[in-house]
Design a binder for these strands. Structure first.
Length: 555
RNA sequence: GGCAGCGUAGCUCAGCGGCAGAGCAGGGGACUCAUAAUCCCUUGGUCGGAGGUUCGAAUCCUCCCGGGCCCA
C-alpha cells in the first residue's frame, strides 16, 4: 500500500544567499528522499519556505536601511530561482509572511492556550537604554549559565546547544552597542514546555531508528531539564498575537516558524483545490521526516513535538535526519568572512548534477565533511564523467554506429550477462533499502558500483570485437548494457535528476522516470534511441585555483 | 582557559566488539567501443599515544598528545 511521506525542510532565513552548507545539510538529502519515494509508488509532500521573521532579518534590514519586507522579497525570489536550477523539488516553498500562516499559528496558539499549555505572565524584558528599544533574544548576548560559554545568544547557546531565555544569561550585553541592558516588566505568553518532559522522554526512548548524533544531542538537552519559554516579544516584525492588549507585540519566531510545516501543508492543499489534501500526510500511518542542520535539532526533536502533543491529532516527527556541518577547504564555513561557496555563484558556472553528486557521495551524514574544489574536480572528472558518463556514452554511441540507433535484438544470455542483470536488480533493491533509511552516501556509492560493474562487463564482452564475426553476440551484450543503463537512470535519478532524465530520453523512453517506477524499465528491441550528447562536462584543472582564490575575499 | 565534536593509507572518507577497507593519487600491464575514457594486477596503515575492560579493541572506559573551533 502506498505510504504517505511528509518531508519538512529547514526554513532558511531570508536575509542572505544560500551556500553549500545549507544544501549539504538539508535541501539535497530532502530532495533525494522526495524523488525516491514517488518512484516507489509512495505519496510525498515536501514543503518549506522563507523564514521572514527571524531577528537576523531585522538586523540586516537595519544595516542596509531597507524595510524587512524588501530584504525578504529579494532573497525569497533568489531561493526560488536556486531550487529550480538545482532541482530541489518542493511541492510548495512559501513564506511565513502569508495570511494562511498567521491563521494557522493563531489556531495552534489558541488551542494550546485552551488546554493550559500557554499561559500569561509578566516578564522582565531586556531593554537597551542606549538604543531605546526592547531587545529581541538574539540581540542579547551573555554568558551561558550552563556551560559558561561567554558569547551565548539570548535564545540558544551555540556551544552546548541548550535553549534559553535572555534572563538566564549572565553578564548581559546589547549586541548592537554592548551597553548592558536592563529589564522592564512586560506581559507575555509562555509555552509550558516543562509539562511535556515525561511524554517527551517516553517518546524519545522509542526512537531507536534516529541517528546517534541526533539522539545523543536530544537526550542531553532533555536531561538538562526543559524550561517554559516565552513565545511573545516586544517587537513589531512578526506574526500578531491573537489576544486583545497585545497589539504591539508579536509571536516570537522560534514558536511560529516550525508551525510553517503545517501551514505550508494546508496552503499546498488549498492550491490544489482540496482543503483536506494535507490530512493524509499528518495523520494515520503517515511518516514525517524533517531535514535540518544539526544546529536546529532541539527545535525539531523537542519543541515542535511538544507543540504537536499539546495540539493533538497530528503525527509527531518520524525521523529527524539532521546532518552535520560542511567545511570548506578544511575550514569551518563563515559567512561574515566570506569563507563560503555561494549557491547562486556555483549555479552560474557549473552544472547542478556535478554538485549534487559530490555532496551526495561526501555528505556530512555521520560527521563533518569537507568540500574542496580539488575534490570537486576529481569527483567530477574521475568518477562522474569517467565512470558513469563515459559508460553511458560508449554504449549509446556504439549502438548508434553499429545498430542503426535502435535497441538491438536480445540473443542467448550467457552466465556473465545473467549475473550482471541480477546485479542490476540487486542494486535497485540495495539502494531502495538504503534510501528508505536515509543512508544517502552509502546509497549513491552502491549505485555507482553498478556503473563500474557494467564497464567491466563491456571490457570482457568486447562487443566491438564480436561485431566483426558474430553480430548477435555483440547485440546481446549491448542489449544487456542498455538494460543496465536503464537501471542506472532509475537508481541515480534521486541524486542526479537532470542527467537521469536525459538518459531516460536517450534510451528512447517516453514519459517520466517517476511514472516508470522503481524497477528496471527494460529496453524493447527495435526501440529507437535518441542521438546522445555526453551526460557530463569534464572540467579543467584551472578551476581549482580560480575558485579557491575567490574564497575569503570581501566584496 | 573552555569544548557531549575530530584524529584510520599521500588525499577524501567508510568501518564503531570478531582476519584493517573503498575511491583517487603512485607503480606495472591489457584494451581501443568511448569525453586520452575503461579494465586487471600492485605498492602503501603499530587505526594519534599510553593504560584499562574483554577470550578478542580501530571499535567500550580513563588519561595524555595533536589539530580544530570558540573565548581571553
Amino acid at each position: 500500500m502506498a505510504e504517505h511521506i511528509f518531508i519538512g525542510v529547514a526554513w532558511p532565513y531570508a536575509n542572505g544567499s544560500l551556500h553549500l552548507g545549507h544544501i549539504a545539510g538539508a535541501y539535497l538529502p530532502a530532495d533525494i528522499f522526495a524523488r525516491y519515494h514517488p518512484l516507489k509508488g509512495n505519496k510525498v509532500l515536501m514543503v518549506s519556505g522563507s523564514d521572514q521573521h527571524g531577528t537576523p532579518i531585522t538586523l540586516r534590514a537595519e544595516q542596509e536601511s531597507k524595510s524587512p519586507q524588501e530584504i525578504v522579497s529579494r532573497y525569497h525570489q533568489e531561493f526560488l530561482d536556486c531550487w529550480q536550477k538545482l532541482g530541489i523539488s518542493f511541492d510548495l516553498f512559501t513564506t511565513t509572511g502569508t495570511l494562511n500562516h498567521t491563521q494557522v499559528v493563531h489556531d495552534i496558539f489558541l488551542k494550546l492556550q485552551d488546554r493550559g499549555y500557554i499561559y500569561r505572565d509578566t516578564v522582565p524584558q531586556a531593554y537597551c537604554p542606549r538604543c531605546q528599544r526592547f531587545l529581541p533574544d538574539r540581540y542579547v548576548e551573555g554568558t551561558c549559565p550552563y556551560c559558561h560559554y561567554p558569547q551565548a545568544r539570548g535564545d540558544q547557546c551555540d556551544e552546548c546547544g541548550r535553549t534559553m531565555s535572555p534572563g538566564d544569561l549572565l553578564d548581559l550585553r546589547c549586541r548592537l552597542c554592548s551597553t548592558s541592558p536592563h529589564f522592564e516588566v512586560s506581559e507575555h505568553f509562555f509555552f509550558r514546555l516543562s509539562a511535556f518532559r515525561d511524554r517527551l522522554k517516553e517518546w524519545i526512548a522509542g526512537q531507536s531508528h534516529w541517528r546517534q548524533n541526533v539522539l545523543n544531542f536530544t537526550i542531553g538537552i532533555l536531561e538538562g531539564g526543559l524550561k517554559d519559554r516565552a513565545i511573545t516579544r516586544d517587537i513589531d516584525w512578526g506574526v500578531t498575537v491573537p489576544q486583545a492588549g497585545f497589539e504591539r507585540k508579536r509571536i516570537y519566531v522560534w514558536f511560529e516558524a516550525v508551525i510553517g510545516y503545517l501551514s505550508a501543508s494546508k496552503e499546498w492543499a488549498r492550491s490544489h483545490s482540496d482543503d483536506t489534501a494535507w490530512q493524509p500526510f499528518w495523520g494515520g500511518e503517515a511518516k514525517g521526516f524533517y531535514f535540518i542542520g544539526k544546529d536546529n535539532i532541539p527545535f525539531h526533536t523537542l519543541i515542535w513535538p511538544a507543540m504537536l502533543m499539546g495540539y493533538e491529532n497530528l503525527n509527531l516527527p518520524y525521523d529527524v535526519p539532521a546532518n552535520e556541518f560542511l567545511t570548506i577547504e578544511g575550514k569551518r564555513l563563515s559567512t561574515s568572512r566570506n569563507w563560503a561557496v555561494w549557491l547562486p555563484d556555483y549555479l552560474q558556472r557549473y552544472d547542478p548534477d556535478a554538485l549534487r553528486y559530490l555532496l551526495s557521495i561526501n555528505m556530512p551524514e555521520t560527521g563533518d565533511a569537507d568540500f574542496s574544489w580539488r575534490e570537486f574536480l576529481r569527483r567530477n572528472n574521475d568518477e562522474l564523467v569517467a565512470t558513469y558518463g563515459n559508460l553511458v556514452h560508449r554504449v549509446l554511441t556504439f549502438t548508434q554506429r553499429n545498430f542503426g540507433g535502435a535497441v538491438p535484438p536480445l540473443g542467448k544470455l550467457d552466465s556473465q550477462s545473467q549475473r550482471l542483470l541480477v546485479r542490476a536488480q540487486e542494486t535497485l533493491d540495495d539502494v531502495d533499502r538504503l534510501l528508505y533509511r536515509c543512508h544517502f552516501k552509502e546509497a549513491i556509492k552502491t549505485a555507482m558500483a553498478l556503473a563500474q560493474e557494467a564497464n567491466r562487463y563491456l571490457d570482457e564482452k568486447s562487443p566491438w570485437k564480436t561485431i566483426k564475426e558474430d553480430e548477435s553476440t555483440s547485440a546481446t551484450a549491448i542489449f544487456v548494457a542498455l538494460s543496465v543503463l536503464s537501471a542506472l537512470k532509475t537508481v541515480l535519478y534521486p541524486f542526479l535528476p537532470f542527467s537521469s532524465s536525459r538518459l531516460h530520453g536517450y534510451l528512447g523512453f517516453d514519459g517520466s522516470i517517476e511514472a516508470a517506477g522503481w524497477r528496471i524499465q527494460s529496453p524493447v528491441p527495435g526501440q529507437k534511441l535518441l542521438f546522445p550528447e555526453p551526460l557530463f562536462r569534464k572540467l579543467d584543472e584551472s578551476i581549482v585555483i580560480e575558485e579557491t582564490s575567490r574564497l575569503g575575499i570581501q566584496e
